[in-house]
Structures are given as C-alpha cells and as structure tokens.
Design a protein around this nucleic acid. Structure first.
Lengths: 182, 182
DNA sequence: AGTAGCATGTAATTCGTTACATGATTTC
DNA sequence: GAAATCATGTAACGAATTACATGCTACT
C-alpha cells in the first residue's frame, strides 16, 4: 500500500504518465523506494478503477501516452494516509518516505507524526541499549566483535534517526546533520 | 537467497531445530532480518535436499523435533557467500547482516569486503552530495524543507555508515560509535 | 539509418508473510 | 488441569521484480 500512496503523492502537484511517475520516484523518494513498471502500471490501473485518478483527454493523441490526474477522492485518500501513523512505519525507510511529502501537511500534524515516531524509536533504542548492557558483561568479547558491532550499528542508527527527527520537528537548519569537512 | 545463508550461518556453531533457528535469528540478526516459520521450514527442506544440512538421528525420539546439522558442503557454501561481495549489498541491511558473521572470516577477507563496501557507499554519497549542491542553488527552500530533509537523512546515514565501517575495519573500540550521555 | 529515450503493458517468478492446522511437553 | 511454550508444517495471499513483448519519437 506504500507505493500506492507514493504514486498518489507524486501526482499531487501535476499530472503525469506512468513513465514520468517512475522518473519522479527515482529522483525523489528513490533512495528509499524503488518502483518498476511492473508495479506502477498495475497500481495505476487499479487507482483508475477506484477513481482515485482519472485519465486526461490526450491532447497529443499521436503518442499513446496516458496522462493521469489525481481526483479529489485521490487527494483525500493521500492526505488521509499522510496524517495517520498506524501504517507500516515499522520500516524506518517507510517513515522517511512519508516525510518526503510532509510539505503538504499542516504543521500541527507534522508535529504529531514525528513525535509518535520518535517514541517508537526510543522504545526500540531502549531494548538495544539493554542488550548492549548484557553483552558488555560477557567475557571474551574479541570472539564476537563483529556480532557486537552490528548491535552498535543499530544503536547508532537509531540515535542518528532520533536526532534527525528532532531537527526537522523544529525546522532547524539541516546542515547540522551532516559533516562538511573533507 | 539471503535467508538461506543466514540459516546456514546460525548452524555453523551448533545443530538446531527450525524452531531454535528462528529464535537465534530473532535475537541475532533479527534487527535486520525477520524470519517466519513459513519461510524457515521450506528453506530447511530445500537445504536438506541439496545436502547442505543433514538430519541428526533424533536421540530423543518422543518429541518430533528435527535437529539440523550443517554438512561440509553447507559450510563451504556459507563461507563462499561470506567472502564474495557480488551479492545483494545494494541493500545496506544485507551487508550489515553479513558482517554479523564476520567473526568466522579471516582478517584479510574482512578487510577486502568492508573496503569494497565503503567504496560503494562513497560513490553513492557523492551522488547525494551533488544533488544537495543543486538544491542549495534553488530559491524558496522553505517550500520543500521536508523533501530536502530526506536528502540530508540519506547523506547523514551514509556518512555514519562509512564511519562505522572505518571503525570495525580497524577493530577499534565500538563505544565511540554511540552517544553515551543521557 | 541507427540509437537512445519515451511509453505501455503482461507473465513468470521470487521472496516472504499470515493464518491455519496439529500436537507434544513443560511449568504453574 | 490450564496455560505457555516447544515444535512442525501447509495454503493462501501479497508485494514487488525481472524478463519479455511492442512500438513510437527525437536526435545525430
């Protein structure tokens, strides 16, 4: 269902063909979501059926291109998805992909969404930190250095993610998130 | 194919039942890979067929438990996977899951693997940094703050990942990777 | 004239989950 | 004796990819 909403999201600003949608996704949320034609076209057909999108009269009839336009019903559905957090945010990337569209969401809703997500992170982070506590009591850590390293990867990732959330929640300058030397 | 190797990996140290394998994965690479019985049992059946694993004579015949033992052929296959980098490391989590088993790999091979991965990161990072350069030239950045934020998320994530690689490549203390205040 | 890019779509396949079905053993 | 956990397995379903099949258009 994620892709469905990403497609609707790309249509919010302008009408596009399936082909163009793919390029948009690639250059936009492409970092977090790949979309092949094999998934885009069937979804588009289903969205048409559900009247979430409509086909524009092809002014340029020579090319057999189908320009899809989002309908009010589609807009509503998309915004609905954007502001509910019960969806599949177990996957972090899914949440970040959602944030990609947050410019279209009201400030108050953005706050609520991010805060809820931060709480999930915190909870998970806690589990990992406890796991670390446990591992640190074990002897012969040289023997499972790499196993431990993946735990630290997880912790570090969640900490960075939490801070990213913190920055964007307050609309602080993004530059502070990255290292600029080198 | 990833799960196949993770299963073989968990069997490298000791023989386990399908049920136990699941618990092992959960508490081990579980952060990066989920495995349900619906995937584990069929894979186990296939591995048995391919003679990658064998069934131990059930000393405790009363319970119908099947203890699987990895065969030499299975070991070879696993180690082969562990030291080749052509697999699906497009997904970062797949690489980290692999690192989980690096304690079983020779130092020289670990170096090669991580270095190769760091180069992929670097290349991708470069693309994102160029994208950022481009975006920074555009006016009205307030209008796409959140879109930009996901780009910064990507950059920050790759930078952290690169540093994580750097630390583990040199077997440096892992503590430096996380923030310990709070 | 040829290549790259625009454009749409389907069929086979992969990889996995969820839900179902079943039953033994341990623990309280 | 009830509940939790151990233990195995299948069938239905889901979400997406890859490969295939087709053809137009713009550039060089």
């Amino acid at each position: 269902m994620m892709l469905v909403n990403i497609i609707l999201g790309t249509l919010m600003k302008k009408s596009l063909t399936g082909y163009e949608i793919r390029k948009c996704i690639e250059s936009g949320v492409g970092m977090f979501y790949k979309a092949s034609y094999g998934s885009i076209y069937p979804i588009l057909a289903k969205l048409l059926e559900q009247e979430m999108v409509s086909l524009e009269e092809t002014e340029d009839a020579s090319r057999n291109q189908k320009k899809y336009t989002i309908t009010p019903k589609g807009r509503e559905s998309f915004l609905q998805w954007l502001q509910t957090n019960d969806s599949d945010e177990k996957k972090i990337e899914a949440f970040v992909a959602k944030v990609f569209f947050f410019d279209q969401l009201e400030d108050a809703d953005v706050q609520i969404q991010i805060e809820a997500f931060q709480m999930k992170i915190q909870k998970y982070l806690h589990e990992l930190l406890e796991k670390r506590e446990y591992f640190l009591t074990l002897p012969h850590q040289e023997n499972f250095y790499y196993k431990l390293s993946t735990l630290y990867y997880g912790i570090s990732k969640l900490q960075s993610l939490w801070e990213w959330c913190q920055v964007i929640r307050n609309r602080q300058p993004l530059e502070q998130l990255v290292r600029n030397e080198k």
